[in-house]
Structures are given as C-alpha cells and as structure tokens.
C-alpha cells in the first residue's frame, strides 16, 4: 500500500565510515522499531491479529456449528457445560457464533475503509495537487456528502439500494470516501507548497511523476493513520446497519445482528446479550489505539 522505495540492496560499507551508515535505515524500519517499543500498540496489534486468526480458522476452532440450535438449551448463562459463553435465544452456541461473526464484522469494518482509502486518497491527491477548478469540483462534491451525518447517510444509501451485504458495503464505502478525500486534499495542499516539489518541477519532472515519487509518500502516512481510525467507526456503522436489518440477514452470524436479536433477552441473560457488543467494543478500541500508536511512530522528527 505504501509507495516507499526500499533502500538500495547494497549493504552499508563498514570499512570506511561505517559508524554513520549503520545508523541509517529505511523509513518503515524506523517506524516499526519505534512501534515495537510501544507496549500498548503491541497488545492491540496482537489482539487484532488474534481476532482475525480466530475468524479465519473459525471452522476448526469452534466447538459447535453456528446454525446448530437446540430449543431446550435456549439462553444458557455463561459457563454452562458445553457452552462456555452460553447460548443465544435459539439455543445456538455463543462462542461459535462470536467466532464466525467476526468474519463478517471484520470484513464489513475493514473492506469499505480500504476501498474508500484508495478512492478517497486518489481524489484528494488530485484535488490538492492541481488545485483550481479540479479542487473545486472534487471538494464541493464531497461537501455535499458532509451535509448528512455519517450514520444517516449510510442508512439512506443502504435503504435506497435495498438490504444486502454488497449494498451495505457500498453504502459504507461511499460514506468514508469524503472524509478521507478531505484529509488527503489538505495534506496534499500543504505538501505541494514545500520547496522540494518546486525543486522536482524545476528539474523538469511532469506532474504525474512528481505526485508518484514526491507527493504520495508524504501524504500517505497521515491518511493511513486516519483510515485506521475509521475502521472502528465503520465496524460500528456496519453493526448498526445489520441491527436495523439493512446489512447481513439472519441466520448469518454477525456481531451487530447478534446484538440486535439478543436485545430482547437482555433481562433474561444480560451478560450473554452484551457479548457481541463487547467484541465490537474491543475490536474498535484496538483499532483506535493502534492508529494512535502509528501516529506517534510515524512522526520522524521525534
């Protein structure tokens, strides 16, 4: 995703002046080194990787089938024999459904942001670098989207397109393009004013080359950090769409949808009902903290 060239493969010559050469390392290596020293980011990253692995390998790890229901065992409490995290209102194993639910929830949280990141950054780069009427057209169009609150916009688009996984993902993507484009535009406008862009232009480079080599890598970092913080928002919005019946359809396990259906049982089994919400909370919190850690690590001058 990042358009940073790796340093030349030739190893630093240690014979003469190796002292300085060994200190120098690639940008991402520096970021990684700084991130590694931040315990909170490491914990969050581990939790997220764990969640993804659990979701991917759910069929191997889950003790039951996500659709297997026994009406006798409805709404068992946490810690029941055979059902560690209890059962839902149809007697399905909560642990299994949480594992399987992670698949859909993570995809719905991450994929729209990734697509919006690509489209939004491209739009913002164009608008910011070329300025003038290109900027006016792109940015005023995104302003139209800003007139609605994100949740309302997602519901409106999703509702207009009709329920379904694809449509709700499309709705979420459209919701996140404008804010990403706006961040990319403002960073690009700032970078464009710097002398090295003028220096590149003075050496005879074309706009596309300047954007590719000199602008993208200076804009990407900030936008990337912003986009990671949007993943949590996107997960919550996706859960909200499912909650309203606009996203995933039952019986597919998905955290937002599970939260919705278990809502009626909150007085019977409050702790079981809260579990999907807790998963959404943990995941979005981890994404937020990780993006915060990244922000710190990517600040070169620190």
């Amino acid at each position: 995703m990042q358009n940073v060239k790796s340093p030349s493969p030739t190893p630093p010559k240690s014979a003469d002046g190796g002292k300085l050469a060994t200190q120098s390392r690639g940008y991402w290596a520096t970021v990684w080194r700084s991130l590694r020293r931040d315990p909170l980011s490491i914990v969050c990253a581990t939790v997220l990787v764990g969640l993804v692995l659990i979701a991917v390998f759910a069929p191997l790890l889950a003790p039951h089938s996500p659709a297997e229901s026994t009406m006798v065992n409805r709404l068992l409490p946490i810690g029941s024999a055979g059902y560690i995290l209890g059962t839902d209102e149809l007697g399905r194993d909560m642990l299994t459904r949480l594992m399987y639910g992670g698949r859909m929830s993570l995809v719905m949280g991450i994929l729209p942001v990734v697509i919006a990141f690509v489209i939004g950054t491209s739009l913002g780069l164009m608008a910011g670098f070329f300025g003038g009427w290109v900027n006016t057209v792109v940015m005023r169009t995104t302003d139209v989207f800003f007139a609605f609150p994100a949740v309302l916009l997602a519901i409106a688009i999703s509702g207009a397109l009709g329920p379904g996984l694809g449509n709700s993902m499309l709705a979420l993507t459209l919701v996140f393009i404008p804010p990403i484009a706006r961040v990319a535009e403002s960073v690009t406008t700032r970078v464009r004013m710097l002398d090295f862009v003028d220096a590149a232009r003075a050496s005879g480079a074309h706009s596309v080359t300047i954007i590719r080599i000199h602008v993208v890598n200076n804009v990407m970092g900030t936008v990337f950090i912003y986009a990671t913080s949007l993943v949590s928002v996107c997960m919550i919005l996706a859960a909200g769409l499912s909650f309203l019946g606009l996203g995933v359809k039952p019986p597919t396990p998905e955290w937002g949808l599970m939260l919705n259906t278990l809502r009626q049982s909150i007085y019977v089994q409050p702790w079981v009902s809260v579990l999907p919400g807790l998963m959404i909370f943990i995941t979005s919190l981890c994404f937020n903290l990780l993006s915060d850690g990244l922000r710190g690590a990517m600040d070169l001058k620190r």
Partner: peptide, 13 residues
C-alpha cells in the same frame, strides 16, 4: 532554495 529541509523530500534518501 533557502529552506534546506523543505527543499528535500523527507521520505527519500
């Protein structure tokens, strides 16, 4: 240029 830092791309060697 005058500003030696701004006239070099911080992300390039």
């Amino acid at each position: 240029f005058q500003d030696s830092y701004a006239s070099l791309n911080a992300r390039l060697t």
